[in-house]
């Protein structure tokens, strides 16, 4: 237990010491999206009755920030430790794979949720956010940050160079999060792209999360959760398996 807590604490401290980059920068990015998109589209788009476009955009932006930062935390921490070699410090220690996994996962979730909360707080200055079902908000925030925390850990274990990680970020994480209904309802898409979106798990994360705010969504939140939780189970299992096998960490 002490081993897990120490590693978790170390991971938290690592991003706290560089808050400006790890928390400040992503909040600023989300804020820029909010200003630009809401300025351009506010007058033209209304997705749900009684919900302004800016308000509609907020949950999507929050969730996008949560996901990208949950991914970034574990992946960048692991690759830095691998490249600088200081990963031996905990590889030499009697930490179990589960402790290792949970420490990185929880730290990634904390980073994602802190950034998400920051975006929500800053966004509150620009639009009024309703909160219909706080439990749904919490459930999707936790489950989705955990999913991307796992993806980040896997990517951090796999990557040997920073540009490989940037590749994952640019070719998988960003497209998945952008093409998931952050900026629009998929009902506004042509039928084909609507169908494709249904295969993107991020779509369900954002849709379920949005339901918590407005009480309306494209699919039923239970249905969304029934997609997200199995994703989490599979990814968590895969991460634990890789750690147990020592993949790329213990040669």
């Amino acid at each position: 237990m002490t081993g897990f807590l120490t590693l978790f604490h170390k991971e938290i401290l690592r991003f706290r010491k560089v808050m400006l980059q790890t928390v400040g920068a992503p909040i600023l990015t989300a804020l820029l999206y909010l200003l630009i998109f809401s300025h351009v589209l506010e007058a033209h788009v209304q997705v749900y009755p009684g919900v302004s476009y800016t308000a509609f955009l907020m949950p999507g932006l929050i969730m996008m920030s949560v996901l990208q930062n949950a991914f970034a935390n574990g992946s960048s921490s692991l690759i830095q430790s691998k490249i600088s070699g200081n990963i031996v410090f905990f590889l030499l220690a009697p930490l179990s794979y589960l402790e290792f996994f949970l420490a990185y996962l929880f730290a990634a979730m904390v980073r994602g949720l802190v950034v998400g909360l920051g975006v929500a707080v800053v966004g509150a200055f620009f639009t009024e956010l309703r909160i219909e079902h706080p439990l749904w908000i919490l459930a999707f925030a936790l489950a989705s940050s955990a999913v991307f925390g796992c993806v980040g850990i896997i990517a951090g274990i796999w990557a040997e160079k920073f540009d490989q990680l940037a590749g994952v970020q640019n070719f998988a994480i960003v497209p998945l999060t952008f093409l998931s209904g952050v900026f629009y309802s998929i009902h506004s898409l042509p039928a084909f792209w609507q169908a494709v979106s249904h295969y993107n798990p991020v779509f369900y994360m954002i849709d379920g999360f949005r339901y918590g705010f407005f009480g309306v969504s494209d699919v039923d939140p239970w249905h969304a959760l029934a997609v997200v939780l199995p994703c989490l189970a599979v990814l968590a299992g895969a991460t634990l398996h890789l750690l147990g096998a020592g993949y790329k960490l213990r040669h």
Binding site: M1, T2, T6, L7, K10, F89, A93, P94
Partner: peptide, 10 residues
């Protein structure tokens, strides 16, 4: 301190 913690020493 961290190294101690990884070894379970508080």
């Amino acid at each position: 301190r961290f190294q101690s913690g990884y070894f379970g020493i508080r």
